[in-house]
């Protein structure tokens, strides 16, 4: 996973609420056995419109996406995060996310920034003409117009993003604890093993 600290550039002023992962990447793009190339299918129904934001001269390849409430709701498909990453997006800024999507985003080096709607409204305005600056280390989103918004992030997620950490390697350090748990489970509740 590519580490992430500071991201600056154009931010797509998308702003829609309840954007589900079927919209981010429709199911027919899921018929693949690799993670690559998902960007082609990203926001397919919206990009059918030739005047869409994502393919406009200003926002094509923009590293930041500004969205509305409950971004990434619906399906657990990690393909949504892969598709955003393939479009070049490293940061999403929204008032809230679905729980599964925000986890998937972090595991793919994409930072889900949570800001209140008022901040989103202001950033949507700035983003139409000017860049946005995101600083994970200091947990801020700023603009060249003295806007400065602080955001909260879980310290574990922050560390994973800053260091580009592989969670499986981290968990493997707890191998003994997992073994001890399994042993105790077998002793306390042996019926938990599938009977057949």
């Amino acid at each position: 996973m590519t580490p992430l600290d500071k991201v600056e550039g154009r931010a797509i002023p998308f702003g829609l609420k309840n954007v589900d992962t079927d919209v981010i990447i429709p199911a027919h793009w899921l018929k693949t056995t690799t993670r690559e190339g998902m960007g082609r299918g990203a926001f397919e129904s919206l990009r059918a419109d030739p005047d869409n934001l994502f393919d406009s001269a200003d926002f094509k390849g923009a590293p930041i996406l500004i969205a509305g409430d409950n971004f990434g709701c619906g399906s657990s498909r990690e393909h949504a995060a892969w598709a955003l990453g393939d479009l070049g997006i490293r940061v999403v800024i929204a008032p809230s996310y679905s729980d599964i999507f925000s986890g998937n985003a972090v595991k793919n080096g994409i930072l889900p920034v949570v800001l209140p709607q008022a901040a989103i409204d202001r950033l949507m305005e700035v983003a139409t003409t000017d860049p946005v600056f995101v600083d994970l280390e200091h947990q801020t989103v700023t603009t060249q117009f003295q806007d400065r918004f602080s955001f909260e992030i879980d310290p574990f997620r922050k560390m994973c993003l800053l260091e580009g950490l592989d969670e499986i390697s981290l968990t493997e350090k707890s191998d003994a604890a997992i073994g001890a748990y399994e042993k105790k489970l077998d002793a306390d509740r042996p019926w938990m093993r599938p009977a057949a």
Partner: peptide, 9 residues
Amino acid sequence: GIGTSEVEH
């Protein structure tokens, strides 16, 4: 539900 990275995990 979990994503594919979590499936691997």
